[in-house]
Amino acid sequence: MAKDKFVILKSSAVPLPIENVDTDQIIPARFLKATTREGFGENLFRDWRYTPDNQPKDFVLNNSTYSGKILVAGKNFGCGSSREHAAWALHDFGFKVVVSSFFADIFKGNALNNSVLPVVVSESFLQTIFTEIEKNPQTEITVDIENQTISLANGQSETFEINAYKKTCLMNGYDDIDYLLSLNEEIRAFDLVNS
């Protein structure tokens, strides 16, 4: 399915300096019951955002000081359950990029499949970003997919890895199934030989 093309993003960022954020926190299991991909954003980080009786808590997503399409989080983001809903929830909420010093494997794949770019930076650069956001919550961060760089308003920048295939997909707005469907005959032949 064609998705939005994504080449360069300039945005302020939301800081979440917590490590080992697991997908149960990103989207608690009780919200996995929808049968479409839309609408998960309102329950993103539900139990950190709201009390059991739906009162807002002191959490960064409830703090109007912070906004933007970039989420900056501590190490090992997205660990735990494989639920792709975590990526949908981030996407539906409006995040296009998550920056961390480390991502859990399955989450990383899920994010890339859903136009949410996981950007891995060094631990020191991550701390710099947190510091910059603390100094100025509106500070603009630029994520450039073509040149694979993430830059801060103060001029500091770092390059990040993204594999060539995913880069092509994101920049052209096509997904894995579009690619796999183009290999239909080869797969059919493989299935016959190996069944």
Binding site: S82, E84, N110, D175, D176, I177
Partner: peptide, 10 residues
């Protein structure tokens, strides 16, 4: 191994 829903679709 475990996969996400996009991969289930694949």
């Amino acid at each position: 191994f475990g996969i996400g829903t996009s991969e289930v679709e694949q």
